[in-house]
Design a binder for these strands. Structure first.
Length: 921
RNA sequence: GCCGGUGUGGCGAAAUGGCAGACGCACAGGACUUAAAAUCCUGGGACUAUAAAAAGUCGUGUGGGUUCGAGUCCCACCACCGGCACCA
């Protein structure tokens, strides 16, 4: 590849236009109330200048990328895939007349900068700033049309000030089940027995959306921090893959579980892929069932509680419950264990507690457990059934106890077989051939007293009603979703706006700092190391720690996800110092748009949809960022700060780009492609075009540098459609020999091709053009970039043979190309202007061309003729030929004759203008 | 195990139930050139047959089905990718 002739001077064109766009602030998006400078291309297009009201602005379109974590490694080819797709759509929508918001920023808190600080002592801010500068350079070199005036980083003091502000809102709110939404904590009324200040404080603290919990958490010793459930995969940390253990610690939690129902239900209102919605549904894990109380049987054991509550999704199998299982950590275990079993139970508890999450998963195949010696009574029939403990029952789900129905639950079945517990059939499979043992689907109740004979759903309903009537149980919904563990023992994160005080009773309690205390800045440290005890590094800064009189600062910091939970809102109003986002501005960009404008433009996009119109990013955030951000947004919605219950209306996941060898790109495989190298050899336009030409955006696909060369060659053909070959050669000679390396002067040597003329196009040329307009427009609407590009290739393959190239046709083609390859399109657009009868205007804001269907109709059609579905001939007919003519011509065809003579023609299908099929028998 | 997705030439891929393989890569042949590169033109699913052409048969993971007609719709299965995984 090296040494091959350059297809066109992208190395001069690309920096030139990037510079021009910057200078013009060409891609600045205007907020209601902002002033459009005279001569700004947006103002020229929409005839606006000076201050503009929301009603004057054209319809909005908000296209968002998942902002990157600026790692030291720089951009990889996966980043620009999504960014290119959104940039193409941004440029397209802009040309269609929308006010498009397309911002970029940096998710810059994170572990790598902190780990680097631990190693070298360099402040994470310095590392972060250097990485951001590198990322920004790389992203800018791709010619994306971001509105850089809205750039933000989550580590900016002016940004995390508002992250802390939102935390205060969470802290000062509770979820009111009556109104089914978050409300200020002041609306919470105290129970009658809450009289002292300490009682009231602790009651409020137990209801806040941000609260402190002492529960066992995921502690990662290697990282020196705790992690959220979502960050633990197979018992290992998502970052680094280090072992994670359960350890009780005092931690900040966010009450995301209060929103479980809404987070689940509202998935139906947004346009996300099925797989992504399914992932969130599974993570939330709603299941309907019943809680049932089992009486503990008298057997000489004294217990404060007399019953054990279980959760089951199959109350209809209650008659088949032949034993019970408690999780080893269940609080009743010590109370019910008999003296004889005490030692065995304690040994087992120690064994279970010693297992890490990882071991617990790995050992999942073999069931273990011990008998407590105690018995319970089955509430439906009074049967005495043994109570066991086993670690296949989780303390953290349901009630931490189950009734075991070995006949119809796989796990209970395995356990019962191993420990020889009775297995009793209570469900008859619908298919008589199916073995009832281990049958877990719906069937018909058998051996089940008053529900015998009922199909499973009815049996469930009847027995649940019966339990409720007798006060033995009730219908219940359980979720897998846990509250969000929100504190980290790290330096490089947002400090909590919280202090701790000691009450008169000696108990310490937490208190929020006032808004006026924001931002809470982290201290400067010499040593960034985490401490092995779990004490965060912030605790080392004694002066900072005690800066608030009579109190100590909270030393935990927020997780990296905090900043990304609301960055899409800050973009709307990035410079606002009075609030996290202005109300009018939020309503314009995020609100329901209907009614704001007199009429909807005639486009396929439905501008009445609320929130971010399009969000593109990787699938790795399916249950992390995308769940957390929805949660925060819903809280802000309940509190009246945002207009919509959902932040991201349409979401598309770009597929993974694999290495040239078809494997995942990784340093160790040595198959990583660096965008800088590709840009140097082929230019940004070719890089962008290739990333889109590879295949459908959502698909996983392998990289091919030869493929880049292919689209690069296509751009060269486009270039040669417009420029004179002779002048190009002179330019090249000048470039290699001349001392003067002034790019602008060199480019002037290149002249337009003489075949480019201001003449009326032929019908054939118009047809080629309009076919291309139609296809590209439809493909952009559907985000089918690869086929849109191939349509442009078809145009060029045709046009390259034209002896005269009408300016009007060629210009329109450049408009189609511009979203994909903006630099070369601008350069040629600029040059063609010289021979244009009328000034063509600013390319990014030139109105998107419309195709004329009248130009696409054919005079003659080629109609395939099939016999029994097999192609036998293609006949040429006039487009006006009726069905009878078509049929006659088809039957008369010489090539068709041999297949129909002497056969019985059963039927002739004529699809108008499409096809003839003759069915013979 | 459960959930979601994907299977089409040597490769990336196209095809509202209507000519399978558009477009591109790689490859082959030709033109230009002292030569090469670049460029331009042409070819191409497999098989059979033929000097060549015309022609025919088969062909979208496998097996069935619906239909005049299936890559596309239905049923069963297989493989691969992604997610979840003792959640009662």
């Amino acid at each position: 590849m090296a040494g091959s002739r350059r297809q066109y001077p992208f190395h001069l064109i690309e920096p030139k236009w990037q510079h021009t766009w910057d200078e013009q602030q060409a891609f600045r998006a205007f907020n209601p109330g902002e002033s459009v400078p005279a001569g700004h291309p947006f103002g020229v297009r929409h005839q606006l200048s000076g201050p503009v009201a929301a009603t004057q602005l054209p319809p909005k379109f908000y296209i968002l990328d998942m902002f990157p974590y600026p790692s030291g490694a720089g951009l990889h080819v996966g980043h620009p895939e999504g960014y290119t797709a959104t940039d193409i759509l941004t440029r397209y929508r802009r040309a269609c007349g929308f006010n498009v918001l397309h911002p970029m920023g940096w998710d810059s808190f994170g572990l790598p900068a902190e780990q680097y600080a631990v190693k070298t002592g360099q402040h994470p801010r310095k590392t972060t700033e250097a990485n951001i500068a590198n990322f920004k350079r790389q992203i800018k070199s791709l010619g994306f049309s971001y509105d850089w005036s809205r750039e933000l980083a989550t580590t900016d003091v002016e940004y995390f000030k508002w992250t802390q502000w939102i935390f205060l809102k969470l802290y000062n709110s509770w979820f009111n089940p009556e109104t089914n939404k978050a409300e200020p904590i002041e609306t919470l009324s105290f129970p009658a027995d809450c009289t002292t200040e300490a009682q009231r404080r602790s009651y409020r603290d137990s209801k806040r959306l941000a609260f402190v919990s002492e529960a066992p958490v995921n502690w990662c010793p290697e990282l020196g921090t705790v992690l959220a459930n979502e960050e633990v995969i197979d018992g290992k940390s998502e970052v680094g893959g280090f072992p994670v253990i359960r350890k009780p610690m005092r931690q900040w939690m966010l009450r995301i579980t209060a929103y479980a129902e809404k987070l689940l239900a509202d998935l139906d209102t947004i346009d996300w892929s099925d797989s992504l919605k399914e992932m969130q549904r599974n993570w939330i894990g709603r299941s309907e069932g019943a809680e049932v109380d089992f009486q503990i049987a008298e057997c000489g054991v004294r217990s404060a509680e007399s019953k054990i509550r279980v959760f089951t999704t199959r109350p209809d199998t209650l008659f088949g419950a032949t034993y019970m299982v408690l999780s080893p950590e269940h609080k009743l275990v010590p109370q019910i264990t008999t003296a004889a079993q005490k030692q065995a139970v304690e040994d087992y508890k120690a064994y279970a507690a010693g297992k890490s999450d990882l071991e617990r998963t790995e050992l999942a195949k073999e069931k273990t457990g011990v008998f407590t010696g105690a018995y319970a009574l089955n509430p439906v029939n009074g049967e005495k059934i043994p109570i066991w403990i086993a670690d296949y029952v989780l303390a953290s789900y349901g009630t931490g106890a189950i009734m075991a129905v070995p006949a119809h639950d796989t796990r209970d079945f395995e356990f019962a077989k191993k420990f020889n517990l009775p297995i009793l059939q209570v469900v008859q499979p619908p298919d008589a051939k199916t073995d009832w043992q281990g049958f877990t689907d719906d069937g018909t109740a058998v051996n089940s007293g008053f529900i015998t004979g009922l199909p499973t759903p009815e049996a469930k309903a009847k027995i649940t009603a019966w339990l409720e009537e007798k006060g033995l149980g009730k219908k219940t919904i359980n979720f897998k979703l846990r509250d969000w563990l929100f504190s980290r023992q790290r330096y490089w994160g947002e400090p909590f706006p919280i202090v701790w005080k000691k009450g008169p009773d000696g108990q310490s309690y937490h208190e929020a700092l006032p808004e006026s205390a924001l931002p809470v800045l982290p201290p400067t440290l010499e040593d960034y190391k985490p401490t092995s005890s779990g004490e965060p590094p912030l605790a080392r800064a004694k002066e900072w720690l005690n800066a608030v009189p009579g109190a100590q600062r909270e030393t935990n910091t927020m997780p990296q996800w905090a900043g990304s939970c609301w960055y899409y809102l800050r973009y709307l109003d990035a410079k606002n110092t009075a609030g996290f986002v202005g109300k009018d501005v939020e309503q314009y960009w995020m609100g329901v748009a209907s009614g704001l404008w007199p009429e909807k433009p005639a486009l396929s996009a439905d501008t009445t949809k609320p929130g971010v119109d399009l969000y593109v990013g990787g699938t790795e955030h399916a249950v992390l960022h995308l769940l957390y951000a929805r949660f925060w947004h819903k809280v802000l919605f309940d509190l009246g700060y945002v207009s919509t219950p959902e932040p991201f209306f349409k979401l598309v996941n770009q597929g993974l780009i694999l290495g040239e060898d078809g494997q995942k790109m990784s340093k160790s495989r040595g198959n990583v492609v660096n965008p800088d190298d590709i840009l140097k050899e082929f230019g940004a336009d070719a890089f962008r075009l290739y990333e889109m030409f590879m295949g459908p955006l959502q698909e996983t696909k392998p990289w091919s540098t030869q493929g880049v060369a292919g689209v690069y060659k296509f751009l060269g053909r486009v270039w040669r459609l417009f420029v004179d070959e002779q002048s190009e050669t002179e330019f090249e000679q000048a470039e290699t020999t001349a001392a003067a390396q002034d790019g602008a002067a060199l480019l002037k040597l290149i002249k337009l091709d003489a075949r480019l003329k201001d003449v009326a196009p032929t019908p054939a040329q118009l047809k080629t053009l309009h076919t291309c307009i139609k296809k590209v427009t439809e493909d952009l609407d559907a985000m089918r970039f690869n086929t849109g590009i191939s349509a442009m290739m078809v145009f060029v393959n045709d046009a390259i043979g034209w002896e005269t190239r009408p300016v009007a046709v060629m210009q329109t083609f450049l408009q189609l190309l511009a979203p994909f390859a903006p630099h070369v399109a601008e350069e040629l657009w600029d040059r063609v202007a010289a021979i244009c009868p009328q000034p063509p205007g600013n390319l990014p804001y030139a109105p998107w061309p419309k195709f004329d269907p009248a130009l696409l109709v054919e005079d003659t059609l080629e109609i395939p003729v099939q016999v029994n579905g097999k192609l036998r001939d293609v006949i040429k007919v006039s487009a006006t030929a009726d069905n009878a003519t078509l049929q006659a011509l088809a039957l008369a065809s010489e090539k068709v004759q041999p297949f129909i003579v002497g056969k019985n023609i059963k039927k002739v299908i004529v699809v108008p203008k499409k096809l003839v099929n003759i069915a013979v028998g």
